[in-house]
Amino acid sequence: MNVSAPIPDDAAIHRLSEDLGTRLRAAHERLVTAESCTGGWIAKAVTDIAGSSDWFDCGMAAYSYEAKQALLGVRPQTLEEHGAVSRETVVEMVSGALVNSGASVAVAVTGIAGPGGGSADKPVGTVWIGWKRRGGYARAEVFHFEGDRDAVRRQTVATALRGLDGLLA
């Protein structure tokens, strides 16, 4: 999905995190994050909310192939065949996050924030986001965000948070 929406600022991300926390707390759910291109920004955003220890379990920032394998159970074969920025990888990341945590809800992100690293098939701004509830099926979606590294990462964080809100609806 191509995205050309306004770049969310810190206040917008804070509001999304607060809203998510309210929903998770009310549903007695706990969140785990598995992050590559955002480097832990989603976990930071949600733990900026006072009381997040009631609904946030843990976050894993896994940039390298080795970290994705060790922390999240991504299979070497998946990374070799599809690469780190793929539907297959984000599904394994989000599933592995649930397996390796006490959470009931997970989000995973993997992408190319730039400025380098893009290709014709996967240009800068390509991001896969996966969401999953324990015992359910993973939902994964590809996004093509515009802007510099900060803009791509901000849009990824906000989109991941909105998707979690939708998952809890």
Rank of each mutant, 00 (worst) to 15 (best):
N2L: 12
N2A: 02
S4E: 07
S4I: 02
P6A: 15
P6S: 13
I7C: 06
I7F: 03
P8C: 04
D9T: 01
D10R: 01
D10V: 11
A11E: 15
A11V: 06
A12I: 12
I13E: 00
R15V: 03
R15L: 13
L16Q: 03
L16K: 02
S17R: 01
E18M: 12
E18Y: 13
E18K: 09
E18A: 08
L20A: 13
G21R: 03
R25H: 03
R25T: 07
A26T: 06
E29L: 07
R30G: 06
R30N: 08
A34Y: 04
C37K: 02
G40I: 02
W41P: 00
I42W: 02
I42C: 01
I42V: 05
A43H: 07
A43C: 15
K44V: 10
A45M: 12
V46P: 04
T47F: 08
D48K: 00
I49V: 15
A50D: 14
S52I: 07
S52A: 11
D54L: 12
D54G: 07
D54Y: 08
D54V: 02
D57R: 00
C58E: 10
M60W: 10
M60H: 13
A62Y: 11
E66H: 07
Q69V: 05
Q69I: 09
A70Y: 04
A70T: 13
A70N: 14
L71K: 12
R75T: 03
R75V: 07
R75F: 03
Q77M: 11
L79Q: 05
E80I: 08
E80D: 14
H82V: 03
H82A: 11
S86N: 07
V90H: 05
V91F: 03
V94K: 12
S95P: 09
S95G: 14
N100G: 08
G102Q: 14
V105K: 03
V107I: 06
A108G: 02
A108M: 13
V109R: 02
T110F: 05
G111N: 14
G111C: 09
I112M: 01
A113K: 04
G114Y: 00
G114A: 10
P115E: 12
G117W: 06
G118N: 10
A120R: 15
A120P: 06
K122P: 05
P123D: 06
V124S: 13
T126R: 11
T126S: 15
V127I: 04
V127H: 04
I129W: 00
G130H: 01
W131L: 10
R133S: 13
R133W: 05
R133E: 10
R134G: 00
R134V: 07
R134Y: 01
G135F: 11
G136H: 09
G136P: 04
E141N: 00
E141D: 13
H144L: 13
F145G: 01
F145I: 05
G147K: 12
G147L: 02
G147H: 09
G147E: 05
G147N: 06
R149E: 08
D150I: 09
R153E: 02
R153Y: 01
Q155D: 00
T156C: 15
V157M: 04
A158R: 01
A160L: 01
L161F: 15
R162S: 12
R162Q: 14
D165V: 13
D165S: 14
L168W: 12
L168C: 03
